[in-house]
Simulated scan of single mutants.
Amino acid sequence: MKKAIRMRVFPDKHEAYKKRHDELWPELQEVLKTHGCTKYNIWLDEETHYLFAYLEIEDEELFTKIADMTINRKWWDFMADIMETNADNSPVSIDLTQVFELED
C-alpha cells in the first residue's frame, strides 16, 4: 500500500529537521520496519517549508499502531520544536490523494 502525506517544518528549522532524520533512532527505525513500513521518503519544498512524505506499508491497521508506541511519542516530542504539531505533539499531517502513477 502506498501513502503520501504533507507536513510542514518551521522556516528556520530545515537543517535541524534533516539532521534529526539523518540520525533517526535505531529503535524507531526498527518499529517502522516491524510494523510493515518498507519504504519511507521525505522531501522538503524549501520555498513553502512543506514536507512531502511517501511511504510504502504492508498493512494500514498495523502501521497505525505505531502512533501509540512510547518510542514514537518520544520522537513526536523531540520534533515538536521544529515543525507544526497537534496538541499531542503529533505532526500536523494531511493525507494526499494519488492522481497519477507511471510504472514499468
Results as ranks from 00 to 15, higher is better:
Lys74Cys: 00
Ile57Tyr: 11
Tyr17Pro: 04
His21Ile: 00
Leu51Arg: 10
Phe52Glu: 08
Val92Glu: 12
Trp76Glu: 03
Glu61Asp: 09
Leu32Ala: 00
Asp59Met: 05
His14Leu: 06
Asn72Ser: 03
Asn86Ala: 07
Asp68Ile: 10
Lys13Thr: 08
His14Asn: 11
Phe63Val: 02
Lys33Ser: 04
Thr38Gln: 14
Asp68Ser: 15
Lys65Phe: 01
Lys18Asp: 02
Ala53Ser: 14
Ala87His: 12
Tyr40Trp: 15
Leu55Pro: 09
Arg73Ile: 14
Arg8Asp: 13
Glu56Ala: 09
Trp75Gly: 01
Thr38Arg: 15
His49Ser: 15
Phe100Lys: 04
Trp75Asn: 01
Lys74Gln: 06
Asp77Tyr: 04
Lys2Pro: 04
Leu102Cys: 05
Thr64Cys: 02
Phe100Ala: 13
Lys2Phe: 10
Lys39Asn: 14
Asp68Tyr: 08
Ala67Arg: 11
Glu23Lys: 02
His49Phe: 11
Tyr17Lys: 01
Glu101Phe: 02
Asp12Met: 13
Phe78His: 10
Tyr40Pro: 04
Glu101Ile: 05
Trp75Leu: 05
Asp77Cys: 00
Ile82Glu: 06
Glu84Phe: 03
Lys13Val: 04
Asp95Tyr: 03
Val99Thr: 10
Ser93Ile: 03
Met7Arg: 15
Trp75Phe: 08
Phe10Met: 15
Leu51Gly: 06
Gly36Cys: 11
Asp68Glu: 15
Ile66Met: 14
His21Cys: 01
Leu44Ala: 11
Asp77Arg: 10
Asp88His: 09
Val99Asp: 07
Ala16Tyr: 02
Thr70Ser: 06
Ile57Gln: 12
Asp59His: 06
Thr34Val: 07
Met69Ser: 03
Leu102Arg: 12
Leu44Lys: 01
Gly36Lys: 09
Gln29Asp: 00
Val9His: 12
Phe63Thr: 11
Pro26Ser: 05
Asp68His: 13
Trp25Phe: 07
Asp68Ala: 15
Ile82Cys: 06
Pro91Lys: 02
Tyr54Ser: 13
Leu24Ala: 01
Lys19Phe: 09
Gly36Leu: 11
Leu24Arg: 02
Ala67Glu: 10
Leu28Ser: 00
His49Val: 03
Tyr17Trp: 10
Ile57Phe: 04
Leu96Pro: 10
Leu32Pro: 00
Arg6Glu: 13
Asp81Trp: 05
Trp43Cys: 08
Lys74Ser: 01
Asp81Phe: 03
Asp68Thr: 10
Lys39Phe: 12
Met79Ile: 05
Met1Ser: 13
His35Glu: 06
Val99Ser: 06
Ala80Gln: 05
Glu46Gly: 08
Leu51Gln: 10
Leu32Thr: 00
Asp68Gln: 14
Asn89Tyr: 10
Asn41Thr: 13
Glu103Cys: 02
Glu58Gln: 14
Val92Thr: 12
Asp45Leu: 07
Cys37Ala: 10
Glu23Ser: 10
Arg20Ala: 00
Val92Asp: 08
Ala4Ser: 09
Thr48Gly: 04
Tyr17Thr: 04
Gly36Asp: 08
Lys65Arg: 15
Arg6Cys: 11
His14Ala: 11
Asn72Arg: 05
Phe52Asn: 12
Leu51Ile: 09
Glu103Thr: 13
